[in-house]
Design a protein around this nucleic acid. Structure first.
Length: 727
RNA sequence: GCCACCUUAGCUCAGUGGUAGAGCGAUGCUUUCGUAAAGCAUAGGUCGUGGGUUCAAAUCCCACAGGUGGCCCCA
């Protein structure tokens, strides 16, 4: 057997070996730290015989710093194994506490793991300590994870015997996916029984012993952590001279792999419980989804929990409240955002910034109303396709005209139909194209109540929307220009962790409108442009808009949820539905192509992410309050007013703190509000006609003449923050 | 929409069946102060809403509303 190690060296064996055997041959310290392996880039149990010639990398537990934290970066593979194993430990603990619990599915996650479990009574956070205590016992017992495999017919029989329909389903899926065997992991060495003849057997049982869920194998069948069950017997007869008392033994149908034993789990926590559904289907069985996380050390866990706490402080809902940026008022309605003056200032600045950029890039601004007649949306396809996501129609009767008919309007769920009608209001020559119509257009969607969340998911929001009408020849150029616009915008705000998703239709679904050939063409063109631009992206089937494929820009919020911000969508369908035209060089009518695009996505969601991105500390150009003047006592209020006026005249957003507080208190207040610069003014400053600058991050920067501060601050704006005041 | 949990002063929160509390904020007075909270005083609450149990409910039960975490959804 030829084993190729990561450094390229090769080890040869003429016998079956496990990754641990190889690790031992390399060095005792490696073997000591080894908890798993990667075999041909696939995770593998450290004690499982290697499959033959292969590439092998040993996964070790991390080295710890003096303070107990992992040295350097966490190894995702090591954490994966650890958390997958901890999920088993938690499931066992829950089954011990609630014997009726049926397990469904328990994968590791980026920051932890969960297990979907069917329980008779729901559990709550009050039950966590009990579960954690039970887990701690299992970990203290330092039990081995032992793997055994059964050929699929035998394996299916075994899951059927256990009678857990979810596991039966998991097994069926594995078999349908081509698995030749099914594997189980036993937590802990099984009970041993010994016959008078000296033969020793493991007595394998799933959960509490019954007549049907047990079998026996000779103890010699345990090699490494793998139990060879090819010689299993349902019953062993004869005289037993030594028999361990029946004890609880736990196993789970599982692909693995796992860490070698439960003792590897250094620190863990059950973090939350929520509900989920079998196969994600609402009409199907409901599970308790119990979340937890695990680390190799207590210090790592504490650091992680601290980080979560800090993230909570960065949450836009928390900061929005603290800084007075926005409020969502019960009396106004769910999911309807009220932008308070400070938030409104930021939004105005965002709009000014983008609008300047759009005008520069050949867009025209338009305005359209918030409602439209229902036929408009029937033509566009919104109404029949997404009726349940819209506010119900407003019925109007024409009393004055007496025509007697009812007219129905809906709050617009999208701006495109209105923009299409603007396009259609004039004849167009190919010479006019592309036509780029932009609007900060407010739309209303009746999102499910359970989905609403701060400013990231709301029922009324304003898209920084635009629709580009162009010829087929112009599509790729225009599409590329819009993607570049989105990239430009994200760059201005310093968003680094952005993923690009090419959202395609799911050919199996019937929720899309338009001919498949047009979809294929649009999807092909988007893909080509992204490839030409050499941007990395992932493709997501089924994520397209109902009228066309799109390129979405996804960012994460502070608690790790992913949100789509910018989007660029290619659309052959709406021009067709509205039968819009332009006259080509051949003097014949042609159908233009539409591109929908929104760099921010919506003002609300963008603002939410921006608040979290900056932790509320907006850069000078975006700050609702750039400067606050702080007289050291009320005696200097008059001079403070003079300074405030000078700054205001110079175009800055500035306030004077006229309270009777001491300057320390004024600073505290201004710091908490994340004001960029505080100007402390007292007798010395007045005498010199100066201001003492304090920066919210860099503290006291010393005194300068008023005009000098104005110039420095203007320079900071002009250089987009590269030249900071005080440097 | 579904499941679980939560809702007490403007904000953050304590209060597990027996007369509603704290800190911050607000207001007033004193202090007139040089870089992250001066001192004192006062006001502010039918404890989300409605119903029920009880001699007695912020506290227990039910319904509704809103929020949070998930699920489903997401043009």
């Amino acid at each position: 057997m030829q084993i190729t190690l990561p450094d390229g060296s090769v080890k040869s064996y003429d016998r079956s070996v496990t990754a641990l055997d190889v690790a031992r041959d390399i060095g005792p310290r490696l073997a000591e730290a080894a908890i798993g392996a990667k075999v041909n880039d696939q995770l593998w149990d450290i004690n499982r015989p290697l499959p033959g010639d292969c590439k092998l990398a040993i996964i070790t537990r991390p080295r710890l710093e003096k303070d107990g934290k992992t040295k350097g970066e966490h190894n995702p593979d090591a954490l994966y194994l650890l958390r997958h194993s901890t999920a088993h430990v938690m499931a066992e603990a829950i089954q011990r506490l609630y014997p009726a619990a049926k397990l469904a599915y328990g994968p590791p996650l980026e920051n932890g793991f969960y297990y979907d479990i069917s329980l008779e009574a729901p559990i709550s956070s009050e039950d966590f300590p009990k579960i954690e205590a039970e887990m701690a016992k299992i970990i203290a017992e330092n039990r081995q994870f032992i793997r055994y495999e059964l050929p699929t017919p035998d394996g299916m029989k075994r899951v059927a015997t256990e009678g857990n329909k979810y596991k039966i389903d998991n097994a069926k899926r594995a078999v349908d996916g081509g698995a030749a065997t099914l594997s189980w992991y036993v937590t802990g060495e099984p009970r041993r029984i010994r016959k008078a003849s000296g033969e020793e057997f493991f007595f394998i049982t799933a959960g509490p012993v019954t007549s049907t869920n047990t079998f026996c194998v000779p103890t010699s069948a345990l090699q490494g952590s793998v139990l060879d069950v090819s010689k299993k017997q349902e019953h062993v007869s004869g005289d037993f001279v030594d028999q361990e008392a029946p004890h609880w033994q736990w196993e789970d149908l599982c692909m693995g792999p796992h860490v070698p034993n439960t003792g590897v789990i250094g620190a863990f926590k059950v973090t939350s419980v929520a509900s989920s559904h079998w196969h994600g289907n609402v009409d199907s069985d409901r599970f308790q989804r119990v979340y937890g996380t695990a680390f190799f050390s207590k210090a790592d866990l504490d650091a992680h929990l601290n980080q979560l706490d800090e993230a909570k402080q960065r949450d836009h809902r928390v900061i929005g409240q603290k800084l007075g940026l926005f409020v969502i008022d019960e009396m106004v309605g769910q999911g309807l955002v009220l932008w308070k003056p400070r938030g409104g200032m930021v939004r105005t600045l965002l709009q000014e910034f983008l609008q300047r950029e759009l005008l520069h890039r050949g867009y025209d601004m338009v305005f359209t109303p918030h409602i439209g007649k229902i036929d408009l949306y029937k033509t566009s396809g919104h109404y029949p396709y997404y009726a349940e996501a819209q506010f119900p129609p407003i019925k109007m009767r024409d009393h004055v005209g007496g025509t007697g008919g009812d007219e129905e309007y809906i709050l617009k769920p999208m701006n495109c139909p209105h923009h299409i009608r603007i396009y259609a209001s004039d004849p167009h020559s190919y010479r006019d194209l592309p036509v780029r119509l932009a609007e900060f257009g407010t739309v209303y969607r009746f999102e499910q109540s359970g989905e609403l969340s701060g400013m990231t998911r709301v029922r009324g929001f304003t898209q920084d929307d635009a629709h580009i009408f162009c010829t087929q020849d112009q599509v790729k150029h225009e599409f590329r220009a819009t993607v570049e616009l989105v990239q430009f915008v994200f760059d201005v705000f310093g968003f680094k962790d952005v993923s690009i998703r090419l959202s395609l239709r799911d050919p199996a679904s019937d929720k899309y409108t338009g001919a498949p050939e047009l979809w294929d063409q649009a999807e092909r063109e988007l893909r080509e442009v992204l490839q030409e631009m050499k941007v990395s992206y992932t493709e997501a089937k089924g994520e397209a808009a109902f009228y066309g494929p799109k390129t979405d820009f996804i960012v994460k919020d502070v608690i790790g949820r992913k949100w789509q911000l910018g989007t660029v969508q290619l659309d052959y369908n709406l021009p067709e539905r509205f039968k819009i035209e332009y006259i080509g060089a051949d003097n014949k009518p042609h159908r233009p192509v539409m591109i929908h695009r929104a760099p921010f996505g919506s003002m609300e969601r963008f603002m939410a992410i921006l608040i979290e991105h900056y932790a509320g500390a907006f850069p000078l150009w975006l700050s609702p309050e750039q400067v606050r003047v702080l007289p050291i006592s009320e005696k200097f209020t008059a001079y403070g007013q003079k300074v405030t006026q000078a700054l205001s005249d110079a175009g800055f957003r500035v306030r004077l703190d006229e309270s009777g507080d001491r300057v320390q208190a004024k600073i505290k207040v201004a710091q908490d509000l994340k004001v960029n610069y505080m100007l402390v003014v007292g007798g010395k400053d007045e005498a010199a006609q100066a201001v003492s600058i304090r920066c919210r991050t860099r503290g006291d920067l010393g005194a300068v003449p008023i005009q000098a501060f104005v110039d420095k601050a203007k320079n900071e704006l002009a250089t987009n923050g590269r030249d900071l005041v005080g440097l």
